[in-house]
C-alpha cells in the first residue's frame, strides 16, 4: 500500500476527533476524541517512518503513548474533582473563571 493511503486514513480519523472535541459537551466524550487524535498522529508517524526506512518515528510513538497515559490519569482526576464539585461533567457548567 502507498504511504498516502495511510496518511489519508490518519487525516480522516484526526478530523473526526477534532470534530468530536468541537461538538460534544460531555467531558468523557471530549477526552475520547482527544485519544482519537493522538492515535491518528501515531498512525501518521508509523506510516512515514516505515516509508522512509527509519526507526525514529516508531520510538516517538512510544513517547506519545506515555504522554497519552499521563494525560488520561490527569484528565480523569479532573473529571472526578469536577463531578464532586458540580454533580455533572457537562463542560458548560465549568464557568467559574468567567467574568
Amino acid at each position: 500500500m502507498n504511504v498516502n493511503d495511510y496518511l489519508i486514513v490518519a487525516t480522516i480519523i484526526f478530523c473526526i476527533g477534532a470534530l468530536g472535541v468541537l461538538i460534544r459537551k460531555n467531558l468523557i466524550t471530549i477526552f475520547l476524541s482527544l485519544e482519537l487524535m493522538f492515535n491518528a498522529a501515531n498512525l501518521g508517524f508509523v506510516a512515514v517512518s516505515e516509508y522512509l526506512n527509519l526507526i525514529s518515528g516508531d520510538i516517538f510513538v512510544i513517547f506519545i503513548m506515555v504522554v497519552a497515559a499521563a494525560e488520561a490519569a490527569i484528565l480523569l482526576g479532573i473529571a472526578i474533582a469536577f463531578y464532586r464539585e458540580k454533580g455533572t461533567i457537562n463542560i458548560d457548567d465549568a464557568n467559574e473563571l468567567k467574568f
Binding site: V9, I12, I16, G17, G20, L32, S33, L36
Partner: peptide
Amino acid sequence: AIVSALMVI
C-alpha cells in the same frame, strides 16, 4: 477504524 471513530463522537 473510520466507522468506529465516527460512532465514538
